[in-house]
Each structure stands twice: as C-alpha cells, then as structure tokens.
Design a protein around this nucleic acid. Structure first.
Length: 415
DNA sequence: TTTCCTGT
C-alpha cells in the first residue's frame, strides 16, 4: 500500500508543485514534502527514517543520497537560451549545500587532495542564462567525485558538450545524470561491490564506478505554419548512456556507451521519465540502443583501416534514406507518411538512417537524430587557437605569445 | 563552445 515507489512519486509531485518560482538555494526544501504525517500507516506514527533529500535549484533538481553522499540523480531541462548567456564560472566557487544537514552532506574538505575532481552532474555550461543560475550548479549537491584527466576534463566534458548541442536542434532537452555503483564479478559466479571512498569516516563520500545520462529531447515546435501540420509526427529524441569513471580512449565513438534504458533502470533502481516512457516505447528504444552500442563497440575494438572505412561509409549514408525500417520491420501501427516529416529535420545536424530504429512509438534514439560521435578530441585546442587568432586580429603572426614569455624571462633576469 | 587542482 505504501510502496517506496509510490512514496517517491508522491514526494516528487508534492515537491515540484511547490517549486514554481520559489526555489531558494538555502531553503531546506526536503522538509516539507517528506513530512512524516503524509504517511498514515500506524508504524509511521513517529515518522519515517529520512534517506533522500530532494533539492530544488534554479535550473536543476538534485535528489541527494546521504548514504553515498552523492546525488542519486540530477535532473535538468536546458534550452538554447538557458545554455547560453553571460554566465561565467571564473568568479564562482564550489560551496556546501547548507540545506542538507551537516551529518549527511558532502563537504569541500572531502574532495581536497582526494585525487578526484569535483565533477558537475548538471554542467555549469548548461546554465549560463544568469550568474545566479551558474552559481547554483556549484552547490556540492550537484557534485560527484570524478576522475579528472581522461574523463571529467576530457571525454565526459565532450559528452556534456554533445548533449548541450542537442538544445540547438531540439526545443527542450531534459537530462537525468547520476552516479552508478556497478558490481564486479567475483570468484565463483557471484558479484561484489568495490569502489573507493574519500573523506573521513564515517562521513565518507563514495566514488562512483560509472556515470549515466538519460536524455529526453522534445522536437522543435513548427517554426512556420507549414510545419505545424506535421507536428504530430515529430518524434521525441531519447537515449541512455553509461560511462566508466575512468580515463576513456578519446577515439571511442559515443554510441559504444549507449545502453538499453531497461538495463540502466535495473542497475540504478531509478525509473526515468515515467510520465513519458512506457513499456512499448522503452522496448523499441532498447532494441535500437543495443544496435548502436554493438556498432560502436565493433568500431572501437576492430578498428582496422578497412573496417574503419566501411563503418565510415555506413555512418555517412545519405540522409534521404531515413527511416525505411517502418516498412521493412513490419510495424503496422507506425504507418505514417514519411516523406514530409523527414525532410523538415533541423539543420546543422546530420540525420542518420538505421535499420532497427523505427517503430519507436513516437521516439527515436539520440544516435538516430545526430551523429553519436563526439566533437574532435582537440576541440579545446581548436577553440583556443581560434581565440588567439581572433584576439590578434590585425597581426596574424603567433608573435602574440612571445610577450608573455618575454615577461616571465624578464622577471627571472631581474633577479 | 570546457573541465578542474595546486599553495600560504
């Protein structure tokens, strides 16, 4: 009668209903919605033990798990507007979430000299519409310990940028991000959990073995009247990805990390986007996700030049080939006229055909919507180079760097 | 168009 799942849903609804405009950084929002009086079971006369803390911030929600001292998940919604603007992280510092009791929250000291980065789950770059919005992402209730080099500062950062770019081809992008603690196979067919912890016992912060992102993107509303007619055919864009909290080969295609939602939900205990995902949608998307994962892993493991060329040709297939599978897979329910809808796709992203992709009950996998390759691994260097060349607008020579070196050497010589 | 850490 009072299953944890029902409770969770009730809490979520109660909390979000009160959010509207009143989210405050320091307000202990977890107290109101989880009031023990909400449960009338006789065993709960003196209240239920509290284990999770729902924290509402401008731009995102964190469901903080005090056992691991990580968020259980962080949920955000980004748009082109929210992810661009004046927000600047230079003047922002991480801060402890005083809305969580001292016994339960993670602390700045936990991360100091831990060897791990303070990794944003809702990325700072997703919330640049105002300085306040960006600052909110620096609350430690949005932070998990992440491996820095090779992961948080590299592949994961590129993944975040990939997700952010979805907000250019979709109206709204809903993203659930969180840690995973995945067991390893132990000797005799069993499993065991093994992961580091940082901080001081007993107030330890778990270091997740993996991180996930679940993406649910709304297709753009018709910009013109002509598109409005086809709006019912616009498909939601959905995908789930899981990556190890470890350095990742920068050449790995993103599709190699696509996972079936069902598997992620079974591993995490979380039911994602329950107001949209139902069993049939989930099943269709899971099939597609496995296909993309297999493609990506094949690409990763057997990257002989010949196979690379073959895969590249497959990936670069003509966009006009788009969802043929509706006819081939024999899903009669999805008997939509395909021609108008497919031609109206947003610009700047390459539409990709994939045989098992159709029949997603109104949804397509992320890898069908855009190339599930990440931007070039040297995109930061490229951006820096572009910045340098633009700042040295008149003089194209790299001499702009020389004065810096000269200053340093001058300082040394002065001594 | 990005992540972060290190001292006194």
């Amino acid at each position: 009668m009072f299953s944890p799942r029902q409770l969770g849903i009730g809490i979520a609804i109660g909390a979000t209903a009160g959010v509207a405009g009143t989210y405050l950084l320091l307000k202990p929002v977890h107290e109101a919605p989880t009031a023990p009086s909400a449960v009338s079971h006789p065993a709960a006369k003196y209240g239920l033990p509290q284990s999770n803390h729902l924290r509402l911030f401008e731009g995102y929600i964190s469901d903080f798990d005090p056992r691991t001292r990580n968020p259980a998940y962080v949920l955000e919604c980004i748009t082109k507007e929210s992810s661009s603007g004046e927000g600047n992280r230079e003047s922002v510092a991480f801060y402890e979430d005083e809305g969580i009791d001292k016994r339960f929250r993670n602390r700045l000291d936990d991360f100091r000299r831990s060897g791990y980065d303070r990794g944003h789950l809702a990325p700072a770059a997703d919330h640049k519409s105002s300085q306040a919005a960006m600052k909110a992402t620096f609350s430690l209730s949005n932070i998990s310990p992440q491996v820095g080099a090779g992961f948080n500062r590299d592949y994961w950062a590129r993944f975040e940028r990939f997700v952010k770019l979805l907000s250019r081809s979709c109206d709204r992008v809903y993203i659930a991000t969180g840690p995973l603690y995945l067991p390893k196979a132990s000797g005799q067919g069993g499993f065991e959990m093994q992961y580091p912890l940082i901080g001081n016992a007993p107030r330890l912060v778990a270091v997740p073995t993996h991180f996930f992102k679940v993406i649910l993107a709304e297709p753009p509303a018709g910009a013109d009247g002509s598109k409005a007619a086809g709006s019912s055919q616009k498909k939601m864009v959905v995908g789930a990805f899981v990556m190890p909290n470890a350095p990742i080969d920068p050449t790995t295609p993103l599709s190699a990390f696509a996972v079936p939602l069902t598997a992620l939900e079974e591993a995490s205990g979380l039911d994602f986007f329950p107001a949209y995902l139902n069993d049939s949608r989930r099943a269709a998307l899971d099939t597609t996700a496995l296909s993309w994962q297999a493609l990506g892993r094949t690409q990763m493991q057997q990257a002989t030049p010949a196979l690379k060329a073959e895969l590249l040709s497959l990936l670069a297939a003509d966009p006009s080939l788009e969802p043929q599978a509706a006819s081939s897979s024999g899903a009669p329910s999805t008997s939509q006229p395909q021609s108008p809808a497919t031609k109206q796709r947003p610009m700047a992203v390459s539409m990709r055909p994939f045989p098992t992709g159709a029949g997603g009950m109104g949804a397509v996998h992320v890898c069908e919507h855009v190339d599930c390759k990440l931007p070039a691994e040297d995109w930061f260097q490229a951006a820096q180079a572009a910045r340098n060349s633009s700042s040295v607008s008149s003089a194209e020579q790299p001499a702009g760097k020389l004065p810096l070196k000269g200053e340093k050497s001058n300082g040394k010589h002065a001594r």
